[in-house]
């Protein structure tokens, strides 16, 4: 078996040189491997999947105790409460996104992957979103019922959460990467990241209220999607830069 690398192109898709049986180097395979491992870990013992879901459930059910069970009151604040609690659940579960790897030394291995840290960060963010946030979104209609959400708004609740929550994972990942070497960095991370969540929260809730109030929700969704796209550009790159700091 002969390893005949001469010069490898430095982009994501590193093709095999005409080796007879050289070890393959495909970026998609690496991305998939990181994604699968993180999704697996998120739902294994000690993972963040169950924790975020149970927090989401419990925290939303607290509100009726606080503001009283009158259906009109609950209905008016339903969208806002569900979005804020989903946002906090996302923040809580992001704390260990990189810290677990930093502590057991596997962050060094992640940094040495030919995929590059930006690709690694993107894979881990996607895994976090799929494993930890999608279950929340799937559960949100149930909480909509608990909060007596207006009947026409359920579709928009799901749609706005689907379009908006990726930005929470993407920007939250930067906060997690910046505080990876900080003991109990979770508190600091929320201070860094929550101000950046404001646009997603405003447009997310705005879309649901528009749907409930029979007005046009499209502009809200459009801006929500735009914010997520910006986060998509910033998130992995800034996270990779922050992680490189902690490797030094």
């Amino acid at each position: 078996m002969n390893l005949c690398w001469t010069t490898l192109p430095q982009n994501l898709k590193l093709t095999r040189h005409g080796c007879d049986r050289g070890v393959g180097m495909n970026g998609a395979g690496i991305f998939g491997a990181i994604f699968a491992r993180d999704v697996r870990l998120a739902w294994s013992q000690g993972g963040t999947g169950t924790m975020a879901l149970s927090f989401f459930l419990i925290a939303v059910t607290l509100f009726p105790f606080g503001v009283g069970p009158e259906p009109q009151t609950l209905a008016r604040i339903a969208a806002g409460v569900i979005w804020v609690v989903a946002l906090l659940a996302c923040l809580l579960s992001l704390d260990r996104l990189y810290q677990a790897d930093y502590e057991d030394g596997s962050l060094d291995d992640l940094a040495l992957s030919p995929l590059g840290l930006t690709g690694v960060a993107a894979a881990k963010i996607l895994a976090h979103w799929v494993a930890t946030i999608l279950p929340l979104v799937a559960l949100s209609p149930v909480l909509g019922m608990l909060m007596n959400l207006d009947g026409d708004a359920y579709g928009m609740l799901l749609l706005s959460l689907l379009i908006g929550t990726p930005a929470l994972s993407l920007i939250g990942s930067v906060g997690a990467a910046l505080t990876v070497s900080v003991r109990r960095g979770g508190v600091l991370m929320s201070l860094l990241v929550l101000p950046l969540y404001v646009p997603t929260l405003i447009f997310g809730v705005g879309a649901i209220d528009a749907a409930a109030g029979m007005t046009d929700a499209l502009p809200h969704l459009a801006f929500l999607g735009a914010v997520t796209l910006v986060a998509l550009v910033i998130g992995p790159v800034a996270s990779a830069a922050a992680l490189r700091l902690s490797l030094e």
Partner: peptide, 10 residues
């Protein structure tokens, strides 16, 4: 500095 750059974009 990384945080400030992410912040200024936002």
């Amino acid at each position: 500095s990384i945080l400030a750059l992410v912040g200024v974009v936002n």
